[in-house]
């Protein structure tokens, strides 16, 4: 059973190993000639002024909340996506569809409500 996930672990290991190698290589092998301008925070060519902590629009909070809601939706869609073909093969594809489509529809109402209320409209 675990053997099926071996490629996954291998990929994680390689990704982590590559990132570590590159970071440590740049840290220990690269030349370092720091000066005042190089050590400044990169701010798209502007002089960095003031603190990064400002008042943000509450819209960002809304986007985060909507993301969490749909993230939880994905948790329930994921087993459906994995097993839908098995359900069709077992002859109960329509029944499962009758369960999952109302679920998606209920959450789509929330998204429509959000769009109607201008929750995703950043210009106003």
């Amino acid at each position: 059973m675990l053997q099926t996930f071996f490629p996954l672990f291998l990929q994680l290991l390689m990704a982590g190993g590559l990132a570590l190698t590159l970071l440590l290589g740049a840290k220990y092998l690269g030349p370092k000639r720091p000066n005042l301008i190089k050590r400044q925070v990169y701010e798209s060519g502007m002089d960095p002024v003031g603190s990064a902590h400002q008042r943000y629009s509450v819209k960002f909070y809304l986007v985060a909340m909507i993301f969490i809601v749909f993230d939880v939706e994905v948790v329930f869609l994921y087993p459906w996506a994995v097993t839908f073909k098995d359900f069709i093969a077992a002859g109960s594809g329509l029944g499962v569809l009758a369960v999952i489509l109302p679920f998606i529809a209920i959450l789509a109402i929330g998204l429509l409500y959000d769009i109607k209320k201008g929750g995703l409209d950043f210009d106003s």
Partner: peptide
């Protein structure tokens, strides 16, 4: 998990949908 979720626990699944809808509307 899917077998249980979409057969025995189909109704609770819809209830979760309603709960998430309430969360969306609350956030808006």
């Amino acid at each position: 998990v899917a077998k249980e979720l979409f057969t025995r626990f189909a109704m609770p699944l819809e209830m979760i949908g309603v709960l998430l809808l309430a969360a969306t509307i609350g956030a808006v």
